[in-house]
Design a protein around this nucleic acid. Structure first.
Lengths: 209, 209
DNA sequence: GTCTATATTGAGATAGAC
DNA sequence: GTCTATCTCAATATAGAC
């Protein structure tokens, strides 16, 4: 499935420069602005060299996505294992820099099948990681597992982060500040609830005592 | 600010065909695939004619966005005035067709200032409409206004819809079904709570008499 | 590995015939 | 209103010199 061609050594400095330049272009000017020429100009090299490392643009997009994805998965795993997992998970989801990149990559994935497959695979892995962790955590926070199953909470955290990121990007100052503050407050509330209550075993959606 | 040039009558059939073709292209092939040539081909007309109605591509993007925005605002206002406002608001936010279009337009707006201004303006209007309605509604649902202010709830509903829409687009079948079902269930729960309790007056985060 | 050069294709936009 | 024709520019990708 996910076999992107790799030319040149994986540790090449030029290769890294191309990836960094592409990521910058994606964030600042959108996926439509990514071309062998624009990337080469931003990286200070020759257009042809871009094609040497990444024969097609698909290869380039996939490589950029993978590099970011590895980092994100690591951060997420660390967040879920931290002493305040909810807050930590929120901080990783709400990273503002990731927002623009996320919209661009999702939009680009819509019509680049190779990228789409890559995105889908990572989204699945990330989601499963979250769900497994939340299955253990939610009961500790005293969250009603019938009303708020892990699948829902995972989708909600990411969605709210996405929504607030968008508000920030569009400079919807007041609404955004109030909503973001409420989220922080809610998380404080939950973390306190967790540390106040004795840890309990995970349990399913059926009624609890 | 938002003054896009309009050439030709607003009710022109050709104009409508161009807008419909553009929307289709956006959803199916992404914003990068929208060009005077591709649009003309999809609409069955000549490329030059696209430029007659929409001198620049910015004008075209803005017009497509506006057409969709008007419809959405209407639907949202009707939802907020319906007997089960939460469920109705959710249904309008979770419309699957809007999902791909939304990602494309947000990404396109990232690097088309004219479009970005238009999106920001509409997002503000929609958000304010929601917030005002929620300020009245939330107390009726017995929602704690301190923990869940209207700004937050509005962002949360849209964000969760966005997140679930993405899961669906990426074919994350199982996670998506569980999360979507939980959302429906949560809304049922809330609507029942509302109709069970006597209506109360709106109240802010601080206590009121 | 890095470059130049180029084949090929398509883009945005405009001028002007009908 | 609709079309043809065209100017100008940039795109992907490849071949091959160094």
């Amino acid at each position: 499935m996910a076999t992107a061609r790799r030319v040149g050594s994986a540790t090449s400095e030029t290769r890294a420069a191309i990836l960094a330049a592409t990521e910058q272009l994606l964030v600042e000017s959108g996926y439509a602005s990514v071309s062998s020429r624009s990337v080469a100009a931003a990286a200070g090299i020759n257009p042809g060299l871009v094609h040497y490392y990444f024969p097609t643009l698909d290869d380039l997009f996939v490589a950029v996505f993978r590099r970011g994805a590895e980092k994100n998965l690591d951060r997420m795993a660390r967040a879920l294992a931290s002493p305040t997992p909810f807050q930590a998970l929120w901080r990783t989801s709400a990273d503002p820099r990731g927002g623009a990149l996320f919209f661009e990559l999702m939009a680009a994935a819509n019509h680049r099948p190779a990228l789409r497959a890559e995105v889908a695979e990572l989204a699945e892995r990330a989601r499963r990681l979250q769900i497994e962790a939340l299955r253990e955590l939610l009961p500790q926070y005293g969250v009603d597992g019938g009303l708020f199953p892990p699948e829902f909470v995972a989708a909600a955290i990411q969605g709210i982060a996405l929504s607030l990121g968008r508000e920030e990007a569009l400079a919807m100052a007041t609404e955004h500040r109030a909503a973001a503050a409420a989220m922080e407050n809610l998380l404080d509330h939950l973390e306190q609830r967790r540390h106040a209550a004795p840890p309990r075993r995970a349990q399913g959606p059926e009624a609890r005592s």
